[in-house]
Design a protein around this nucleic acid. Sequence first.
DNA 1: GCTTTAATTCTGGAAAAGAGATTTTCATTG
DNA 2: CAATGAAAATCTCTTTTCCAGAATTAAAGC
Lengths: 301, 301
Amino acid sequence: MDLSSIEIFLAVASDRSVTKAAKAVGRVPSNVTTRIQQLEEDLGACLFSRDGKKMTLTREGETFLAYANRLMALALEARQAVRPLAPSGTLRVGTMESTAASRLPAPLTQFNQMWPDVSLHLTMGASRDLARDVLADVLDCALIARPPKTMREEDLDFDAELKALEMETVFVEDLLIVLPSGHPAIKSAADLRVGSLAALEPGCTYRRIAENWARTSSSLPTTEHGSYHAILASVATGNTAGVMPRSVLDLMHWPTAVQTHQLGPVETLLVYRKDDCPSAFSAFHEVLGATKGRDVRLAAN
Amino acid sequence: MDLSSIEIFLAVASDRSVTKAAKAVGRVPSNVTTRIQQLEEDLGACLFSRDGKKMTLTREGETFLAYANRLMALALEARQAVRPLAPSGTLRVGTMESTAASRLPAPLTQFNQMWPDVSLHLTMGASRDLARDVLADVLDCALIARPPKTMREEDLDFDAELKALEMETVFVEDLLIVLPSGHPAIKSAADLRVGSLAALEPGCTYRRIAENWARTSSSLPTTEHGSYHAILASVATGNTAGVMPRSVLDLMHWPTAVQTHQLGPVETLLVYRKDDCPSAFSAFHEVLGATKGRDVRLAAN
DNA sequence: GCTTTAATTCTGGAAAAGAGATTTTCATTG
DNA sequence: CAATGAAAATCTCTTTTCCAGAATTAAAGC
């Protein structure tokens, strides 16, 4: 029983899907299947019941889930406990609006409990600006969206900035176009029946991905909003299509099932300067790494 | 950080020696060294201070030790919790006198706490008899000494019986000849200056190993004793040499440092019938496996 | 009934682990 | 103080395990 198997198990348990879990932990589905089977054999118990293509936890799986969370939490605590110098001071973290909303609450809470001496400064912004701020030492690290390859080739400046930084994938977002209710299903941007795209500020990578996609067939104006809540409200009025990752949409229990279109997966990167590694940053890095594949519901230690 | 690294760490921490730990966990010393170094790099902290050839835990090592014990205990608990059917009924365990004295107290206590519904019957005896009893279904399993290859070739009956059973190494004992105080150091049986060997019953594998060793040069009579305490008392009288594993000798805080001679390592096997696997046995098997490399002091969970 | 999507199985290549030999280091001893 | 012995570390080679991608199978949706 090794801890990486448990991380994989947690991802499958929380997503109830091998494919999604594989993305979450950055592996290939066949590998996830194998590791789960190994774990089951090792424990001598069936953890999931495979009725059709759904993976649902069995009774034993549920009890193991509790232990799995405790084990991960304990392992993380052990790591932090042996840290030679306890982190303190200030840590300046930049993040996209979406990541702050959907991914950070759990790890930030945990980090804050573990290291109350660190004062954590959170800055929200667009990926480009955040990357620049990290380079300029205005931020210690940032969570930004990795632009797809075609976009990187168009924006060599940004690409060069990224290359100057250390980076690491921590989440994978499923970027969506959110359509007004009643809008017919779409296969491409040409099928859009709205007057505009609703997105955040111009530097936002998600916005630029959506604009690139829309540009291929039609030429829609983009209306700028201050928050994802504002975007969704706009979409509800019926004449605009919103841009946001699925994880954010999932947070806002929307009354009816919304029509969405997938723009594909977009990686969220943790970027930081190559040279400097303040103690508070490595602690943050570690907490983020330990939390990434896991359920938002944290285990009672 | 995987649990096998932690098992290795616990062994090194408890033995304060790479070589001994390697024997305890059934690996080669170079491997233990590497795994400890990996663990240290992974944690970003020094766990041991290598002053000379002693491995002493550092401050960080001490704090990690506590977590390591908790992690192992939690992992074991998780295993047991997902066991589909809670074990109950009776489990008949055979064991050598020496194993019962030095190795079993910790796992038996743990097993008893975990599965109070299982009534555990412990039978003491010589390896040969125990193996036979397992075959005859008088016992569910037994802890016996594996005779060295030369002895197995002389005793084909016993060898055949062993082959009919499932077996697994759980401990490695350092078999000793214990000499009276004042006896000169010996290099072989020819240097013995005593009138007899003190051992347990004739079927005892340790006794037979010692007799084989003594036979090569001299021909000493063996006097039979009922317990290791009796053997040690006999040795103290001055005219006999005792046979016992180091782990047993270590238990009996003897007034003065005794003169000993090593007869070499002898594996302790857990043997059981190939076919039948009562639930209580697999639980016992698991507890034994989890405890084998560890310190006797159990962790508070 | 065909298409789509998800899980599993299979297979080849890459990475990691383990064993044994060698070297280094330190304590012990003559 | 040099020689010896024992224990840890290093190195190299073999074996095992792990992982990605392709092929396969099975179920759900249209």
